[in-house]
Amino acid sequence: MQMHLKKRIEIVLEAPGLRRLTETLERLNVSGYTVLPAIAGNGRGGPWSEAGQVSDAERMVCVICIVDPAREEEIVGPIFNLVKRHIGLISVSDAQVIRGERF
C-alpha cells in the first residue's frame, strides 16, 4: 500500500486558549484537526490534574493535525505566535498517511 509522507503537528495547550487555536487552524485552512482531553501531567509549573476542576484554568487539551510538509512553516508560525504566551508545547513529527490527497 502506498503511503504519503506528511507532518503531524501536536499542540498541548491550556484549555482556555482552545477556541483561539481552533479558530486559527480554520483560518489557515487546515483541513482537519482532532482535540483530545489531557487527564493529568507535570510541567514547569508543577503537577496538574483535571480531576475535580470547576474552572478551565488548570485543564490542558491536546490538538493534533496532519498537514502537507510544504505548509509546515506557514501553519506552525501563526500557531506559535498564539501559543507562546500560554502554557503549552508544539511538536512536529513525520507521519505517513494512506489518503495523501486529504491533507
Binding site: R20, V54, S55
Partner: peptide, 22 residues
C-alpha cells in the same frame, strides 16, 4: 473568585502564574 476569573486570566494575562492565584 476561582471559577470565572482564573479562566479569564489564562486568556487575558497568560504570563501570570495560575499556581499563585488559584
Amino acid at each position: 473568585s476561582y471559577i470565572a476569573v482564573p479562566a479569564a486570566m489564562r486568556l487575558a494575562l497568560p504570563e501570570a502564574d495560575a499556581a499563585i492565584y488559584l
